[in-house]
């Protein structure tokens, strides 16, 4: 059902943990099946631009939800806020090879969580 890449991220996730003192937390729930994600970010500066210095996620959800949470962290880490916002569900799925059709919404959740965290940070620091 799942690709090897999905299983690899599921079995050995590197970013699925709580973060102490994050700069912002994006909390999203999945209206389809009732799952939940908390996306934590720490913001730093590089060449005068704000970047995602560190990111982690906590997920209550299926294999695809956990895998996509891990991937979104890989993709966002070190990116400028602007570039991180551009990460799409297609980018996430591409990293994993493919996802079963009924699991696409899990990747949207990871993307939403990241955007929510960024939005929270930007609102706080306006």
């Amino acid at each position: 059902m799942y690709t090897e890449k999905v299983m690899e991220h599921f079995k050995h996730p590197r970013h699925l943990k709580e973060m102490k003192d994050p700069d912002a937390v994006g909390t999203v729930g999945n209206p389809t099946c009732g799952d939940m994600m908390h996306v934590y970010i720490k913001v730093g500066k590089k060449d005068g631009k704000e970047i995602i210095e560190d990111i982690s996620v906590q997920t209550f959800g299926c294999v695809a939800a956990i895998s996509t949470s891990d991937v979104v962290c890989d993709l966002a880490k070190g990116k400028t806020m602007e570039d991180a916002k551009k990460i799409s569900k297609e980018d996430i799925i591409k990293e994993l090879g493919t996802l079963p059709h009924q699991k696409i919404h899990c990747s949207v959740l990871a993307q939403d969580g990241l955007n929510k965290a960024i939005e929270k940070y930007e609102n706080k620091n306006k």
């Binding site: 599921f10 209550f60 959800g61 299926c62 939800a65």
Partner: peptide, 9 residues
């Protein structure tokens, strides 16, 4: 606090 499919896999 956890999801069944993940545990199953």
């Amino acid at each position: 606090y956890i999801e069944g499919e993940a545990l199953l896999i």
